[in-house]
Design a binder for these strands. Sequence first.
DNA 1: CCTTGACCTTACATCTACTGGAACCTTTAT
DNA 2: ATAAAGGTTCCAGTAGATGTAAGGTCAAGG
Lengths: 127, 127
Amino acid sequence: MNISDVAEKTGLPAKTIRYYEEIGLIAPHRGQNGYRVFADAHLHKLAFLGRARTLGFSIEDCRTLLALYEDDSRASADVRAVAKDHLERINEKIAEFEEMRATLQHLVQSCAGDDRPDCPILRDLAR
Amino acid sequence: MNISDVAEKTGLPAKTIRYYEEIGLIAPHRGQNGYRVFADAHLHKLAFLGRARTLGFSIEDCRTLLALYEDDSRASADVRAVAKDHLERINEKIAEFEEMRATLQHLVQSCAGDDRPDCPILRDLAR
DNA sequence: CCTTGACCTTACATCTACTGGAACCTTTAT
DNA sequence: ATAAAGGTTCCAGTAGATGTAAGGTCAAGG
């Protein structure tokens, strides 16, 4: 399978697939023309990576998860720990964003949004 | 005022203040020794920037907001538009993160987290 | 006067996770 | 034979800083 087939099947851009090879997440073979040749195993890995990235895992987390995925004698506790840490970071981010949202909503609401210069948003920023 | 005083007063790292100068957000004077010399106006601008960044505005948004802040004949509608756009982006991000959170919470809950290899998290990623 | 340490300067590298583009090679279809 | 469609590598750029190295400056103490 060539890269564009893999791109289509996994939903990942070819560029991203090349990048994942560059950073050592996958290691497709090469044909004698120099083209990458992908087997089903690579396809599965890439789908795995795509899904993990969708869930917001960092590339380093993905690397760890992939290693655990391939290790038949893994402990599910290790996987769970990675996911739990990540979940916590997500929760922190949501909390941050919600604070921003609350403030911004308030400010946007209180601003007349007309052609006059007076603006509660700028007043808040300059406070 | 030297940069470390400003850093302390604004809560911004000195490095960040230099960076903001580099990208043209502020333009402190220089003493004959080459040191940056900050006036109160710079301090206010930096505080403004710090606050705007805390609310998640991009640097480019900050540039726009700062320009509006300094423009006495601004229309509050312009400020409001920037804030509203940003609010919308925040809402989108929260939605994304909440989707991740829901999935991750479910997966973390359903994983035993023991020393056995069986793991619903990996099964989901590999699905 | 000299040294020490704190503070300042610039310049360059690094980080995350790609993405865009140029220059060039290979395959496939006409 | 040629042109389009695919593949390749390599380099640069994105956002928003942050780390580090090499060096200039300043105030205090001996």
